[in-house]
Design a protein around this nucleic acid. Sequence first.
DNA 1: GCGATACTGCGTAGGGTATACACATCACCG
DNA 2: CGGTGATGTGTATACCCTACGCAGTATCGC
Lengths: 252, 252
Amino acid sequence: MGEENGGGLPESVELAWGLRDRPGKGPKRTLSLKGIVEAAIRVGAAEGLEAVSMSRVAAEAGASTMALYRYVPSKGDLLTLILDELLGPPPGPPEPGTGWREALREFAVALREVIGRHPWALSIPITGPPVMPNNVAWMEAGLRRMRGTGLDSGTRLSMLTLLTGYVRFTAALIHDLESATRAAGKTDQQVAVDYGTVLAAVTEGGDFPELRAIVAEQLFTRPGDDTPEDEFEFGLDCLLDGLEARVRRAGG
Amino acid sequence: MGEENGGGLPESVELAWGLRDRPGKGPKRTLSLKGIVEAAIRVGAAEGLEAVSMSRVAAEAGASTMALYRYVPSKGDLLTLILDELLGPPPGPPEPGTGWREALREFAVALREVIGRHPWALSIPITGPPVMPNNVAWMEAGLRRMRGTGLDSGTRLSMLTLLTGYVRFTAALIHDLESATRAAGKTDQQVAVDYGTVLAAVTEGGDFPELRAIVAEQLFTRPGDDTPEDEFEFGLDCLLDGLEARVRRAGG
DNA sequence: GCGATACTGCGTAGGGTATACACATCACCG
DNA sequence: CGGTGATGTGTATACCCTACGCAGTATCGC
């Protein structure tokens, strides 16, 4: 990854914020950072993150592999830039008069949608606290929606981390299961049924009575009226309930 | 990854559960699956997941690279086996008379500790629903601790997924930040201060008033009495509050 | 106007990865 | 005892990232 440079900021951060003085000395540049990131996103969207190699991206951008390194210090930095580009700007403020809970809920759902559009990017590793432009903007937006809670900054920051973390990991879980399903060439329904079968086989021994009961209940083999999105909403509401309890406790 | 075989179970699952008939035809085996997994864990613990390559593991186990493929269908399957080995058996039942909330809390903390002992393994991708032996045992233990809630199986399963997911993703977040800190050769304190500096620089423009206020509050530059573990506890209690609200609502 | 300079894109090369395949060897089964 | 199949190993393929050197080009200082 791009090391510290003189200015104190990591290289990819400066790139993302568009700092970085590029004096016009040599030949004109034929590519652009934005173009490269977009090419990388095209590759990722079409073939998944594992297909995002420097040579593949270079081909997509219409240049040689090594040309990319004139724009990006390393592949890791490119991935970080992809992440922020995909995130995009946060949603605008909620309707006036919206309570903090509903506002936060909207926020989480918006994030879920953004991630849902490019779930392949979820495997890009997080390398530090949020410093990229869009990421910072989302933080700001989230904090603003928590104004009505009356909580101090530290607690609000913790809550925001908790909420975005939840959205992220749930989306990752859903995506992992879906891609595993796709890789096995089955339908969701088929996977659920198979899971029930495996669990049934595995719980035969008499240990695992709880699981055995669930299998016997045919929770997996019945047609699934419980989609992953339902699971997401369940957890989200649960989390918001927890936040609400805290807010009420602090307010009293 | 190991494909389906005749029996219907993925290969790594059969391996983990110790099914798999190995008739004694050829030469005696010089290695063992357990030994290989343990060698891999030694490598991972010492040098991180990225160092866990087939050749490195083979060297650690005292064999050639290709010998491993006589025991494991692919690297992916080896990683899955590592994950379950590290998980180990779940904690025993709580003290008699313990309420469901405290029981679940203990459960989560136990999971956090197990993960905390080998955080490098968190980057191993999840490839499907939980079917490995220890994973299934943890599920069973978790479900049992929710007996007192009086909720139906589906809801309890959702809650368990939520809780274990939370522990996992929080641990991952903490570990990512810590390893980023270590990679940059700084202390936690230094990173926090630097983060404050970056945020200050970035929020200079007048957008981001919320963040600006936080920076001005010196939330980052003050000596950190708020450890990552505190953050973990915060989120955990928040989640349990949410669960409790649901249980109470269902009970009434 | 004219170097000097610095930046451009690119080709090569080196070291890393996973794993398919062929091969000699060994231990059991009939 | 011969056949057979499993074992461990070496080789080969096809990738990956990126350090380095090179030729060409656009600007700056004089």
